[in-house]
Measured scan of single mutants.
Amino acid sequence: MATGGRRGAAAAPLLVAVAALLLGAAGHLYPGEVCPGMDIRNNLTRLHELENCSVIEGHLQILLMFKTRPEDFRDLSFPKLIMITDYLLLFRVYGLESLKDLFPNLTVIRGSRLFFNYALVIFEMVHLKELGLYNLMNITRGSVRIEKNNELCYLATIDWSRILDSVEDNYIVLNKDDNEECGDICPGTAKGKTNCPATVINGQFVERCWTHSHCQKVCPTICKSHGCTAEGLCCHSECLGNCSQPDDPTKCVACRNFYLDGRCVETCPPPYYHFQDWRCVNFSFCQDLHHKCKNSRRQGCHQYVIHNNKCIPECPSGYTMNSSNLLCTPCLGPCPKVCHLLEGEKTIDSVTSAQELRGCTVINGSLIINIRGGNNLAAELEANLGLIEEISGYLKIRRSYALVSLSFFRKLRLIRGETLEIGNYSFYALDNQNLRQLWDWSKHNLTITQGKLFFHYNPKLCLSEIHKMEEVSGTKGRQERNDIALKTNGDQASCENELLKFSYIRTSFDKI
């Protein structure tokens, strides 16, 4: 039985969820670079991206490699990797027998973001014989899940209580170790020597080791999670996991709180800001991140802002960003909400898709409305799209047979046209069989910064309504002859009103 693990408890099935942008060198404390989270699957090609990484700022997932063999891993080693800020997950990587050479110096898994409450997941690794993470000293947050690894031993010899604050939620089941077939031998045991430290858990006094050649490092209890030197002297209180010299914040392997210019500090002093819960960055760093993602459509890219001495992905609820200094300031009234469309555009074809934009005031991208039916549609669209004030790209209304009016965009005031449909149009209306009105132009103002209007096959939309939009939106004169079809717009509506004058002759039985 794995020490510190839980057996036999019912657990939810383990679901495996399925960018080499360097964020800056980590400095003297770390020998390499800070790398983003990685999802490495199918083959070993991307694994080489770990070569210079000291910190993975995010998670590391290595999974679904069915053609790899043990010899493929023999020359692979990433000794610079010290810390993973989120979680480490391995799933069905064939041929991998140990992690001792792959990650010989991995010391800390912070667990800032977890995989279903777990910071370390080893699942269905069919050839893994031992973990071998002999320098792993601290899992700051989260638990361990090690399950269905039929060859995995050296679990009962690990004292997880020396690595985690609590072992109650560890789930370590259905491994070879369960069948008591392992016969784990710690260093020196074969020669009758006791080389590794022994600890007591559940009444068992057991030597602690990761492999037959690597003991588990056990520091004096007084050192807590700070770690200790090879001689057993406690590291500085700002260290986490390990250090090369005692009581020196510049000799830590990793930091308990924050890293700044080669030393570990309790908090980031001005003019620095907390970033990702582990390091200090200056304003320029946060500003660069903001600008890199301002026009990016890459998933996970955030326009970072500053709030409460932190550089964070977005302002919290009730705050909006001051564009001059990136500071989050309290909103006066309802907060603006910028919604970034991942692929640059979004099609609204149902109430469900409209709900995804609920509360958005600025759309960074283009909207395509293609709704053919739905219950209580006008009210639903207004509830979900009615706060949109600005669209950076274009607005396209296409084959939306259920629409009679666009009044559900009740606050839309600006279409920038930074991206144009077919390279020309910022407003595009095609084949809307029941569209009769755009907006009530006596109450609604709309500016279209650039781009043209396109109207074709809107049989109940009168040309007068379209011409009014040209005047109000500032697009009059931009359109070419064929942009607004004269014969297919309003051709099934009563669009022309003329005053009919009647004269009559009164007659009676005795007068003409």
Rank of each mutant, 00 (worst) to 15 (best):
H28L: 10
Y30C: 09
P31V: 07
G32S: 03
E33F: 01
C35S: 00
C35K: 00
G37V: 15
G37H: 06
G37T: 06
D39G: 02
D39M: 13
I40S: 00
N42Y: 12
N43V: 07
L47E: 00
H48F: 07
E49H: 06
L50P: 01
V55L: 03
V55N: 02
I56Y: 00
E57D: 15
G58S: 00
H59Q: 11
H59D: 02
M65V: 05
M65Y: 08
F66A: 07
F66R: 02
K67C: 08
R69A: 14
E71F: 11
R74P: 01
S77G: 08
S77R: 10
P79L: 03
K80C: 04
K80L: 07
I82Q: 06
I82N: 05
I84V: 03
T85W: 01
D86A: 02
L88G: 00
L89H: 04
L90V: 07
R92W: 10
Y94L: 15
Y94R: 09
E97Q: 14
S98C: 05
L99A: 03
F103P: 00
N105I: 02
I109S: 00
R110G: 09
G111V: 00
G111Q: 00
S112K: 13
S112V: 11
R113A: 03
F115Q: 04
N117V: 07
I122S: 04
I122A: 06
I122V: 07
I122N: 00
I122H: 01
M125G: 04
E130R: 05
E130L: 04
L131W: 01
L133M: 04
N135K: 14
L136A: 01
N138R: 15
T140F: 07
T140G: 05
G142F: 01
S143W: 10
S143I: 03
R145C: 09
I146C: 03
K148I: 01
E151Q: 12
A156N: 15
A156S: 09
W160C: 02
S161C: 06
R162H: 11
R162V: 09
L164D: 12
D165K: 15
D165A: 06
D165W: 10
D169M: 08
D169T: 13
Y171F: 10
Y171T: 09
N175I: 12
E180I: 03
C182T: 10
C182W: 04
D184H: 08
P187S: 07
A190P: 10
K193R: 15
T194N: 14
N195F: 10
A198T: 10
N202L: 06
Q204Y: 04
Q204F: 13
F205N: 15
E207V: 06
C209E: 05
W210L: 06
T211G: 01
H212L: 15
H212C: 15
H212R: 09
C215V: 11
Q216R: 07
K217T: 08
V218R: 10
C219K: 03
C219N: 06
P220Y: 06
P220W: 00
I222T: 07
I222G: 13
C223K: 02
C223A: 04
S225K: 06
G227F: 08
C228Q: 03
T229A: 05
A230R: 01
A230T: 05
E231S: 08
G232S: 13
G232M: 04
G232F: 03
C234R: 01
C235G: 01
C235D: 00
H236P: 02
S237D: 14
S237A: 12
C239Y: 00
L240S: 05
L240I: 09
G241L: 02
G241K: 05
S244N: 07
Q245A: 08
P246S: 13
P246V: 07
D247T: 03
D247H: 15
T250G: 08
C252P: 00
V253G: 07
A254T: 03
C255K: 01
C255D: 00
C255N: 01
N257V: 01
F258E: 01
F258S: 06
Y259A: 12
L260S: 03
L260T: 06
C264M: 01
C264K: 00
C264E: 00
T267A: 14
T267F: 15
P269M: 11
P270N: 12
P270C: 04
Q276E: 14
D277L: 05
D277V: 04
N282I: 12
F283E: 11
F283N: 09
S284V: 05
S284C: 02
D288L: 13
H290L: 07
N295R: 14
N295F: 11
R297L: 06
R297K: 13
R298H: 03
Q299I: 09
G300N: 06
G300L: 08
H302N: 08
Y304E: 02
Y304Q: 03
V305P: 03
N308M: 08
C315K: 01
P316S: 02
S317P: 07
S317R: 00
Y319S: 06
M321W: 14
S323P: 14
N325C: 11
N325E: 11
L327M: 08
T329F: 10
T329R: 12
P330Y: 15
C331E: 02
L332M: 13
G333T: 03
P334L: 09
C335W: 09
C335I: 04
C335N: 08
P336R: 07
